[in-house]
């Protein structure tokens, strides 16, 4: 819902949470009227509760609403943009946004591996690579073809590597031709 300076989500399903929310709004009369979950789920009652909630929230800031949710025990947090996620202290400590240096493409960022595992955690090691850059690593070292066989495949155009005329197949122009290679 819209608040003074942005948008928040609010949830208060259980009795305790709904009571907390009504207390925060200074509207305990709503809690008394709609004390049971079944009452709150009726469409006509939802309309009344939501209208009250919207009118109340739009006069508060995100920070005020989150503080009230902490104090009164209902769930609430900001509608986050990618900028919010990138800068959020909690997400930073969890390394939820994985900022890393790719040996070929440089500084990159994306959402970290989910979930977090204590013994065998996920990690992000590199990004998309120029087309065909790992041909030798995979065909020779992993699959076990000979250098000559791989050479032959290049000649027959069964495999290939990046072509300058097709820019999105290529490494960046400032790449030194060595960083990030897995072969030899």
């Amino acid at each position: 819902m819209r608040c003074k300076n942005s948008f928040v989500a609010i949830a208060a399903f259980s009795e305790d949470e709904f009571r907390g929310l009504c207390e925060a709004m200074n509207r305990l009369d709503l809690f008394e009227k709609y004390a049971s979950i079944d009452e709150r789920l009726k469409e006509e009652n939802q309309d009344v509760i939501y209208k009250t909630l919207h009118d109340w929230a739009k006069e508060k800031t995100v920070e005020e609403l989150i503080e009230l949710s902490n104090k009164f025990g209902f769930a609430s947090d900001k509608v986050m943009s990618s900028k919010d996620q990138y800068e959020d202290e909690h997400w930073k400590e969890r390394k939820s946004i994985w900022v890393y240096d790719d040996p070929i493409s440089g500084s990159l960022a994306e959402v970290a591996p989910v979930p977090k595992l204590s013994e065998s955690p996920g990690r992000i090691k590199w990004t998309a690579r120029p087309t065909g850059i790992d041909n030798e690593h995979v065909f020779i070292r992993i699959l076990g073809l000979s250098k000559e066989e791989v050479e032959e495949l290049y000649k027959k155009n069964v495999i290939g590597r990046w072509i300058e005329q097709i820019p999105w197949t290529c490494p960046p122009p400032d790449w030194n031709g060595k960083d990030g290679l897995f072969y030899p």
Binding site: A9, F13, E17, S69, N70, F74, A75, M80, D84, E93
Partner: peptide
């Protein structure tokens, strides 16, 4: 289970997850 907000006394609700996910934005 860790990070500054991990000790918050709040239950997990879908609408708040969606809000924080960046997708609602």
């Amino acid at each position: 289970h860790f990070g500054p907000k991990a000790k918050s006394n709040k239950n997990d609700y879908d609408v708040v997850d969606q809000a924080m996910s960046g997708m609602a934005w």
